[in-house]
Simulated scan of single mutants.
Amino acid sequence: MIEFEQLIHLVAFYEHQTLSEAAKHLHISQPVLTRSMQKLEEVMGVTLFQRTKNRISFNETGFMAVEYAKRIINDTTDMKKQLQLFDRTLHTFSIGSCAPAPNIHLSQRASQTYPEKTIQSEIKDMDVLIQGLKDKTYTIIIMPYDIDDENIESVPFMEEQLYFSLPFDHPYANKSSLSLKEMDGQKMLLMSNIGFWNQMHQRTMPHTKFLIQQDRSVFYDLIELSTLPSFTSDFMMNLEGKPNNRKIIPIVDEEAHATFYCWYLKENENNLKSFLYHLV
């Protein structure tokens, strides 16, 4: 019976051209590799190599054996990957999000719908999310726009509106609304890892110096103690409460409002029925 390890040895010999280099790559001795090739020939009942006094090389049958071996190795590797992905879908619900608020929202929904599963979530760039959905790294992804794709379905599930959070003595604290342009050029506190909102702030407020905070508790301490403006949203205020020492002012720009969509592969729709039912 052919052993999988023998096929790996065969391909390594082909790729590295000499037994010594192949053995070094495989972290085995050259005699062990030589015996492995001899045993493979015995099991197959054919000669795979041309042998001279100081050299061993592939014959035509050997080259064909290499092609089959590569195919078997690739198929086996793919089988392992697909089985691991399938097993993970049975026990894990993985969410990839473009922003924090919808990530919190859908993680809570997923926990309620699938109490027996481990809920995993992370915030990534949108191109990473799309690729992750396609290769099934994520069960669902959260995006700030709809999609028309034969393999992907999308469902709108929440909106988020950004606000400026200003100290009461800020020059604009008496305004009923503000634009991003009006606030551009100031120093502002900003949380890290806020997904696509980060790119929006950088694009629409190019002259602003953002003091980015990694730790959320430090971020809230600075909001309470400093006079620096910051951002908040309707979702975060509902979740965590409105800061007592701040004036909350709506941002009028369209960029400050987002509609979030849950994307999923159409082939998984039946498995997601319970989740989608509670989503809309």
Rank of each mutant, 00 (worst) to 15 (best):
Met191Val: 02
Phe168His: 10
Ala173Glu: 07
Glu255Ala: 15
Asp148Ala: 15
Leu272Glu: 04
Ile2Leu: 07
Tyr163His: 14
Leu10Gly: 03
Val43Ala: 05
His105Ala: 15
Trp263Cys: 00
Leu211Gln: 01
Asn59His: 05
Met236Glu: 06
Pro171His: 15
Lys124Glu: 08
Asn270Val: 04
Gln17Glu: 12
Ile28Lys: 13
Glu60Met: 15
Ser230Glu: 06
Phe4Gln: 15
Lys24Glu: 08
Lys242Tyr: 14
Ala258Leu: 08
Thr137His: 14
Met64Ser: 15
Met236Phe: 09
Ile142Gln: 07
Tyr163Arg: 14
Arg88Pro: 02
Val218Trp: 14
Asp234Ala: 07
Met205Ile: 04
Glu116Lys: 10
Asp75Trp: 01
Leu162Arg: 12
Leu222His: 01
Met64His: 09
Pro156Arg: 11
Met183Asp: 03
Gln6Pro: 05
Met236Ser: 06
Tyr114Arg: 08
Phe58His: 10
Met1Ile: 07
Ile152Val: 09
Asn268Pro: 09
Thr76Pro: 07
Ser20Lys: 04
Phe86His: 08
Ile141Leu: 02
His105Phe: 13
Phe63Asn: 05
Glu60Gln: 12
Asn198Met: 09
Asn270Asp: 14
Met44Ala: 08
Glu153Asn: 07
Lys181Met: 11
Leu133Pro: 00
Ala69Met: 05
His16Gln: 15
Asp146Tyr: 09
Phe219Ser: 04
Thr76Phe: 09
Met191Asp: 00
Pro250Gly: 02
Glu159Gln: 13
Asp169Met: 02
Phe210Ala: 02
Ser177Asp: 04
Ile8Val: 02
Asn238Ser: 11
Thr139Gln: 01
Met79Val: 03
Leu272Trp: 10
Glu269Lys: 10
Met237Pro: 01
Thr89Gln: 13
Thr92Gly: 02
Glu150Met: 09
Leu90Ile: 10
Ile56Gly: 12
Leu225Ala: 12
Thr227Glu: 08
Asp169Gly: 08
Ile212Val: 12
Ala22Thr: 06
Val252Pro: 06
Ile142Asp: 07
Phe219Leu: 08
Ala65Thr: 03
Lys175Gln: 13
Val252Gln: 14
Arg109Lys: 10
Asp78Met: 11
Ala99Pro: 00
Arg109Ile: 03
Thr61Glu: 15
Asp234Ser: 11
Phe219Asn: 03
Asp146Asn: 12
Asp253Trp: 14
Asp87Val: 06
Asp253Thr: 05
His91Asn: 03
Arg88Cys: 03
Pro229Asp: 11
Ile73Arg: 13
Ile130Met: 12
Ile248Lys: 03
Leu19Thr: 06
Gly195Cys: 09
Ser230Met: 05
Val46Asn: 03
Ala99Asn: 12
His91Ser: 05
